[in-house]
């Protein structure tokens, strides 16, 4: 059924790897801030924020197309089954 998720992501996200993949996708304005236990990536031009901690990543945006693009990039960076 359509309601089932297509995959279950696991592991930690490599922030450098993600930033590189964002750039490859044309999102070159990523600003990375490192805080205790969390990275915050801001894409100002796209009005998007990505919060990354060990076991979770949160994408905050106002653009569905871009969010779906980001989701696919994240799933490429993470392992999944």
């Amino acid at each position: 059924p359509a309601s089932l998720p297509r995959c279950y992501p696991y592991g930690n996200l490599n922030v450098d790897d993600l930033v590189q993949r964002l750039a490859q996708a044309g999102l070159t304005d990523a600003r990375v801030e490192e805080h205790p236990g969390v990275y915050i990536i801001t894409l100002s031009n796209e009005d998007m924020i990505i919060k990354i901690s060990d076991a979770s990543t949160h994408i905050i945006s106002a653009n569905s197309k871009l969010r779906e693009k980001l989701r696919d990039i994240l799933l490429d960076c993470l392992g999944s089954f």
Binding site: Y8, P9, Y10, G11, N12, L13, A55, S56, T57, H58, I59, I60, S61, A62, S64, R67, R71, L74, L75, L78
Partner: peptide, 9 residues
């Protein structure tokens, strides 16, 4: 360990 992806639009 699972990695949770959360989205807010």
């Amino acid at each position: 360990s699972p990695h949770q992806l959360r989205f807010t639009e």
